Computed example of a mutant assay.
Amino acid sequence: MENGKMQFSAPVSRDRVISKFPKWYTPQACLQTKDHWHVRVKTACKDRAPWSLGMKMSKVVVVGDLYVGKTCLINRFCKDLFDRDYKATIGVDFEIERFQLLGFPYSLQIWDTAGQEKFKCIASTYYRGAQIIIIVFDLADIRTLEHTRQWLVEAMKENEPRSCSVFLIGAKRDLLASAECQRVERDAIKMAADMRAEFWSVSSKTGENVQECFSRVAAVAFEDSMLQALQGGVPSHIGSSDLIKIDRGTAGDPRAADENRLTCC
């Protein structure tokens, strides 16, 4: 810290600097239509509390059916790339994205999990310790929306009740005409309400709403972490690079996971 200001080892891109609480997608789809930080969080940040509490990182787990667009969503946000010919994720993979929230460095560790049934037991090992659960479905395939409830059940088996914030994201918005998209979104908003999730509609191809959605995710994760820390219950998954338990080699190779004696169902 120099002259009362936090120093970063490398600059954070402008679109990762968040001072105002990001807006929701639509009021009907949001659990909490607010556009301001919690007063305790704002006060703590003025007192430089996040730095003293070791507030550095939150774990985000992305789940959903095969080919709904999980990897494309993450690649669009993290790399600003879209590749329609990507290969399906094997096991798990992760990206780390850095932010500056209310003047403090903060990162999201974003886990991309396989949608194939045969890898579900491997991927579920990495659900544990999530602060944000993102469930992705294909807006053009209503069956994938129907499966989202079970994905939430699977993810919550590895986490404490009410320990996670949940986002329901409809991908491939660009494939639907406006009227059809609105119809599917109405069904998705009802599902999100039942799941106590916040709904977003995005397009990884065009980038529509992707940055805005992840900005909201980062802000929610940071604020939730701050409030828990201020109440004296800092989550075990917050704070350091200890979040990363494996390297990219083991993440993508189910044989390596088996060698590490991961328990399968």
Rank of each mutant, 00 (worst) to 15 (best):
I96E: 11
R149P: 05
E154F: 10
D93W: 04
V136L: 07
T148M: 04
R143M: 07
C121A: 08
S107H: 07
L139A: 15
A140W: 10
V136Y: 02
E117W: 12
G91D: 02
S107V: 15
G115P: 00
R143F: 11
Y126R: 08
F137K: 01
E146Y: 09
T113K: 01
E95Q: 11
I96V: 15
A140T: 08
R149F: 14
I133V: 15
T113L: 11
I132R: 01
Y106N: 01
L101K: 04
L145Y: 02
D141A: 10
T144Q: 01
G115L: 03
I96N: 03
R149K: 13
P105A: 06
T148G: 03
E146V: 06
I142S: 15
T148P: 04
R98H: 13
E154T: 07
F94Y: 14
F99C: 03
I142N: 15
Q100P: 03
A155P: 08
I110C: 05
I90Q: 02
D112F: 07
F99V: 09
G129Y: 00
W111K: 09
L139K: 06
Q116S: 14
I96A: 14
D93E: 11
E97G: 08
L152V: 13
L102E: 05
Y127I: 13
P105V: 15
Q150F: 11
G91Y: 10
D138A: 12
I110W: 09
L145C: 08
F137I: 05
Q109K: 10
A140C: 12
L152R: 07
F119A: 09
I133E: 00
Y127L: 04
D141Y: 14
V136F: 04
L139M: 15
H147M: 07
Y126C: 10
S124H: 06
T113N: 10
S107E: 10
K120N: 06
L102Q: 05
Q109L: 05
Q131K: 06
V136W: 00
I132H: 00
Q116L: 12
K120E: 13
